[in-house]
């Protein structure tokens, strides 16, 4: 697969990864991408048409746990490492309210 590694592509990927990059970093990464993609091109030589992807490293299945509660960590420990917290919650820059009263509403992502 031949792909042109443009600055725009790197910027797009950096946006997806929420990774702030300086201009010099973008240029460096661009070069790195080219090398890495060239390096992994080796895999193209292999015909894997009929090969099943190896999704799990071992054969473990059904590692489930019973539905009985354990004591949670609790508010204080939960918030202990928070960079910005109030008495019971983590604080983040204001999220533009969506769908009425509750910002975000949970399940929905912007």
């Amino acid at each position: 697969m031949s792909i042109e590694i443009t600055e725009a592509l790197i910027s797009h990927i950096a946006t997806l990864a929420r990774l702030g990059l300086s201009e010099s970093e973008i240029a460096e990464i661009q070069g790195h991408f080219e090398k890495v993609l060239h390096y992994v091109e080796a895999l193209d030589k292999l015909d894997t048409e009929s090969v099943d992807p190896s999704i799990f490293t071992n054969d473990a299945i059904n590692m489930l746990e019973q539905d009985s509660p354990h004591a949670p960590l609790g508010q204080e420990l939960a918030l202990k490492n928070g960079p910005e917290v109030d008495e019971d919650s983590f604080l983040v820059p204001r999220i533009i309210a969506e769908a009425g009263n509750e910002a975000g509403g949970g399940k929905a992502s912007p």
Binding site: I10, A14, R18, L19, G20, L21, H32, F33, V36
Partner: peptide, 19 residues
């Protein structure tokens, strides 16, 4: 997000995250 991660991660970690 992008500033915290941009400032917090070193160059090799950034490369791998992006790849």
């Amino acid at each position: 997000y992008s500033n915290s991660r941009g400032e917090g991660f070193g160059p090799e970690v950034k490369r791998r995250i992006l790849v």
